Amino acid sequence: MSGAASSLAVAVPQALHPPLAPSVGDTGSGPDAADFRLAMRRLPGAVSIVATRHAGVSAGMVATSVASLCADPPSLTVGIGHGVSMYPLLMQSGRFSVNVLTVRQENLIALFSGALKGEARFAHGGWDVEDDLPILPAAQATLVCEVADRLAYGAHDVIVGRILSIRNAAHAAPLIWQDGAPHASRRLAP
């Protein structure tokens, strides 16, 4: 091109769908908590158990808020509530494991969501302790992390975990949480 300025026109397509109607009872001041919870139930997520250990005490919780952050350095994020029983141990330990569940581990959801407390949770599922962290060998993937950073937001922290080691199973059969219930994922036909 010569030194002359050029302009590009970008065509913006018309909306493919009509705009969303406001929820019943919407006052225009933003979404209410019930609408938010319903929308998040529509967002499927892989089910993981995040576990930590400090001074010989193990703690763990079910999480669907685990997300990849970046590959260099390998890292992930997980949201953890300040009131969750494992939060103080995680802050003291500074290390945790993310154990991505398979469809065969559906029974662990209730156990790590409040049906059992503390160490009793780890009596189920075949847990090991490696390098002083709870590890679920039968998980489809286990990522051992150290807390690299955290962002407090509302009643939660977004924890950045720098991945120290990874163990992957040969086959993937992820357990998915959607609309308040466990589901199995399946590949769509080509």
Score class of each variant (00 low, 15 high):
Val158Met: 13
Ala123Asn: 14
His171Ile: 05
Gly83Ile: 02
Val50Pro: 05
Thr77Gln: 13
Leu16Trp: 12
Arg42His: 15
Leu164Arg: 09
Leu76Arg: 06
Ser29Leu: 14
Leu76Asp: 01
Arg42Cys: 15
Asp131Gly: 00
Asp131Gln: 05
His54Cys: 02
Leu111Lys: 13
Ala170Glu: 15
Ala173Phe: 05
Leu111Ser: 04
Arg121Cys: 12
Phe122Trp: 04
Pro137Asp: 10
Pro190Gln: 12
Ser93Ile: 00
Ala5Lys: 04
Ala9Arg: 14
Thr64Asp: 00
Gly161Gln: 11
Tyr153Met: 08
Pro19Ile: 05
Gly154Gln: 07
Thr27Val: 04
Ala33Met: 07
Ala21Leu: 15
Pro19Met: 07
Ala148Phe: 09
Gln140Tyr: 04
Ile135Asp: 03
Asp131Pro: 01
Gly30Leu: 11
Asp26Pro: 10
Leu188Met: 07
Ala139Val: 05
Ala11Arg: 10
Ala169Gly: 08
Ala123Asp: 12
Ser165His: 06
Arg162Val: 02
Pro73Gly: 09
Arg162Lys: 10
Ala181Met: 12
Ala51Tyr: 06
Arg104Leu: 06
Ser68Gln: 09
Gln178Trp: 13
Ala189Lys: 06
Pro182His: 08
Tyr87Ile: 03
Ala115Ser: 14
Pro182Leu: 08
His17Glu: 15
Leu175Ile: 05
Val50His: 11
Val100Cys: 03
Pro182Phe: 01
Glu146Arg: 07
Ser48Asn: 11
Gln105Met: 00
Val160Glu: 00
Ala110Pro: 03
Ser58Val: 00
Ser65Arg: 01
Ser23Lys: 09
Ser185Ala: 13
Ala148Ile: 01
Val10Ser: 07
Ser185Met: 15
Ile176Pro: 00
Ala173Lys: 04
Pro134Gly: 12
Phe96Cys: 03
Leu89Lys: 00
Cys145Val: 01
Ser165Ile: 00
Gly45Phe: 10
Gly25Asp: 13
Asp179Asn: 12
Leu143Pro: 07
Ala55Val: 05
Ala189Asn: 06
Gly28Ser: 07
Tyr153Gly: 04
Ser29Asp: 15
Ala51Trp: 05
Leu108Cys: 10
Ile159Arg: 02
Ser6Gly: 14
Pro22Tyr: 07
Ala123Trp: 02
Met91Gln: 14
Asp72Glu: 11
Gly25Gln: 10
Val147Arg: 13
Gly25Trp: 12
Val147Gln: 13
Leu116Gln: 09
Gly125Met: 02
Glu146Gly: 10
Asp157Asn: 00
Gly60Val: 01
Pro74Tyr: 03
Ser75Cys: 00
